[in-house]
Amino acid sequence: MNIRSLTRGDGGVIGAAVLLFIASFLEFHSYDCHGASDCPTGPNGWKSQLFPVLPSIFLAGIIAAALIVAARFQPEGRKLVGLSLDQWGTALAVFAAWSSLWTILGGPEGVSGPLIKIELSPGVGQILALIANLLLAAVAVLTPRTPALKAPLMGTPQPTPAPYGAPGAPAGYGYPGQGGMPGAGAPSPYGAPDQTQPYGGAQPGPQAQPGQPVQQQPQPAQAQAPQPAAAGGGEPFAPFWFAVPVGRPLFAEDGSPTQVSELVPGTWYLAVDQRGQALVAQTQDGRRGLLQDTSGIQRG
């Protein structure tokens, strides 16, 4: 579950649901007994005497918000009885708003007691429930059609690659340029390639500058280690560090849809092989998987 997938509209839905939950514990009706000492206390939304206020106004709105938010963490295209979760949530939010509106417009005006006449008026809980449900329904309907509401709720940190060993380089895991890299007097992070020699070579090679290819020195045939071939039989694949602009799933290497991990922004990962347009990536804990969406990645 990645909270970065939430939108601003989802934030508004969550806020409306919290307000609705609070309103359910406040007075739904306010009693005016004209100064009588034995005036009853107004019931809240959880009182059975107000049924079906609880399921049609409060629970309907809260469940609607839960369905809309849960849809962000489900695979795209998954449906329930022909509709996606956010579509069910939107329909339920509109129903809750409609119930709140008619309850406050068509509610009882008063009751007669044995000695006094008690006047009823909307309580704080009823008014807040109407506001919360109207807000919930409006945000649920407008989010798919409004770019401002579809924007990410949380900003995505953008990693800034720096030259190897340059001061101020990001401190993300395994970034090629930290003091812990080979050649800096400290052990290499797990799975990090030695930048002082070509991948798989036994002899040191020339240092690479960012954005420039490395000219490999010829090595004796017996000293060469096998190198993974690039897709299509081209040049051998050279492992490199990269970062993703947004959270992306890492699937099993066998090509199955099983998700083994999730790559998050602000962290450097090691690409150890290439399969077509996809990369075989290795995480901090040594797990490997297939990154199918490589658009916008930043190389270290």
Rank of each mutant, 00 (worst) to 15 (best):
Ile127Gly: 03
Leu92Gln: 07
Asp10Arg: 09
Gln217Pro: 11
Leu20Asp: 14
Tyr190Ile: 06
Gly106Leu: 15
Ala17Asp: 00
Gln277Met: 11
Phe95Lys: 05
Tyr31Met: 10
Asp273Thr: 05
Ile62Ala: 09
Gly247Leu: 02
Leu20Asn: 12
Tyr190Val: 09
Gly89Asn: 11
Tyr269Ala: 10
Thr196Leu: 15
Arg288Trp: 03
Ala192Pro: 01
Ile131Asp: 01
Ala151Gln: 14
Gly276Val: 02
Pro40Glu: 06
Ser112Gly: 03
Val280Phe: 02
Gln219Thr: 07
Pro161Gln: 04
Val81Arg: 05
Glu253Ser: 07
Gly12Asp: 04
Ile118Asn: 08
Ala137Trp: 04
Ala230Thr: 12
Leu134Phe: 00
Val13Glu: 03
Leu135Ala: 14
Val141Ile: 14
Gly191Gln: 11
Gly177Glu: 02
Ala97Leu: 12
Gly113Leu: 07
Pro198Val: 03
Ala132Gln: 01
Pro163Gln: 14
Pro152Phe: 14
Trp268Leu: 12
Gln197Val: 08
Gly9Arg: 12
Asp293His: 11
Gly211Tyr: 02
Asp10Gly: 08
Thr294Leu: 01
Ile131Gly: 00
Gln227Trp: 05
Ser84Arg: 15
Val124Gly: 00
Gly177Gln: 06
Gly233Trp: 10
Thr294Ile: 02
Asp10Thr: 09
Leu101Cys: 00
Leu120Ile: 15
Glu253Leu: 15
Phe28Gly: 12
Ser5Asp: 07
Gly113Thr: 09
Tyr190Gly: 11
Gly35Met: 02
Ala252Val: 00
Ala229Met: 08
Pro144Asp: 04
Pro189His: 04
Asp32Ile: 12
Ser261Trp: 08
Ala93Val: 03
Gly110Leu: 01
Pro144Trp: 04
Gln178Glu: 11
Pro157Asp: 02
Phe237Asp: 07
Thr160Ile: 14
Gly276Lys: 10
Trp102Thr: 11
Ile118Lys: 04
Gly110Glu: 13
Val272Ala: 15
Arg275Tyr: 10
Gly123Asn: 04
Glu109Ala: 13
Val18Arg: 01
Pro187Trp: 00
Gln49Asp: 15
Pro236Tyr: 07
Ile22Ser: 01
Thr196Gln: 11
Gly183Phe: 10
Ala36Asn: 05
Ala65Ser: 12
Val94Thr: 01
Leu101Asp: 00
Ala36Leu: 07
Val141Thr: 08
Leu80Cys: 01
Ser112Arg: 15
Arg288Gly: 03
Leu20Lys: 13
Leu120Trp: 02
Gly234Arg: 05
Ala36Ile: 05
Ala238Met: 09
